[in-house]
């Protein structure tokens, strides 16, 4: 379980104004919010990439925010993260990209690494790309490789920053389906951040709506739809 308490993050202005949230094991939580509402900041703070000004985060009772590097490292072995722009390492091939975290933290043989890379590429339905460099891939393929990299070491929690943004509708739909299948197959806890409501409806077991630096709503999809708020209706109009 991930526990977030009173999280405050200020840059030149307050971005998160004291948010709390519990993320349950094996759920598919979707965090909705407008562009610039602080979604990326929120998940990056949860995994310890951004230091909060106040508040606490713990992952399976390991504190992320207390600043102990050893603790943080322990927590991170359970975390996968798929960045908004994939963030593949340009200087490494697809194979090396996926193998890197495996090599770093687990004592595996060459063959075991090879098998794990192959398996995670199969899970994202990509094959025969091991030797290519990120620059040789399309946007959708990069997203898939990034997902493969995040699932390769079988972390318990996987974060997705806007998995369908910047893709054509067909590819976006494919990724949506892929994540849904993947979630069922590997029984992990998925946390995705998005403003794509089609995606949300398809995959979410729970929604958290980030607005004005706070969670305006946390609950089920159908409850969210029932909310009588103009912005939510706008979501529907846009996406349906």
């Amino acid at each position: 379980m991930i526990r977030v308490r009173d999280l405050e993050v200020n840059f030149d202005f307050p971005v998160l104004k004291g948010v709390s949230l519990d993320i349950e094991d094996e759920e598919f939580l979707v965090i909705l919010g407008k562009s610039g509402s602080g979604k990326t900041v929120f998940i990056k703070t949860v995994v310890g990439l951004i230091r909060p000004n106040r508040g606490e985060v713990s992952i399976d009772d390991i504190s992320v925010t207390n600043g102990e590097p050893k603790e943080l490292l322990k927590a991170r072995k359970n975390i996968g993260f798929v960045f908004q722009g994939a963030a593949l390492f340009d200087s490494l091939t697809v194979f090396e990209n996926i193998a890197l975290p495996l090599r770093e933290h687990f004592s595996l043989t060459k063959k075991e690494i090879k098998d794990k890379v192959k398996k995670s590429l199969e899970l994202v339905e990509l094959e025969g790309v091991e030797k290519l460099y990120p620059a040789q891939l399309s946007g959708g393929m990069k997203k898939r490789v990034a997902i493969a990299r995040a699932i390769a070491y079988e972390p318990k929690y996987i974060f997705f920053d806007e998995p369908t943004t910047g893709l054509d509708p067909e590819t976006a739909l494919k990724i949506t389906k892929l994540l849904k299948d993947l979630w069922k197959k590997i029984k992990g806890t998925f946390i995705a951040v998005t403003h794509d409501f089609g995606f949300t409806e398809e995959v979410a077991t729970r929604i958290a709506w980030l607005k004005g630096g706070r969670f305006e709503f946390v609950g089920k999809v159908n409850e969210f739809k029932k909310l009588d708020v103009k912005e939510i209706q706008a979501y529907f109009v846009k996406t349906f």
């Binding site: 072995k77 975390i79 593949l88 975290p101």
Partner: peptide, 9 residues
């Protein structure tokens, strides 16, 4: 990519 490195520990 730096964030990606850090999140992988």
């Amino acid at each position: 990519q730096i964030d990606a490195l850090e999140v992988m520990g």
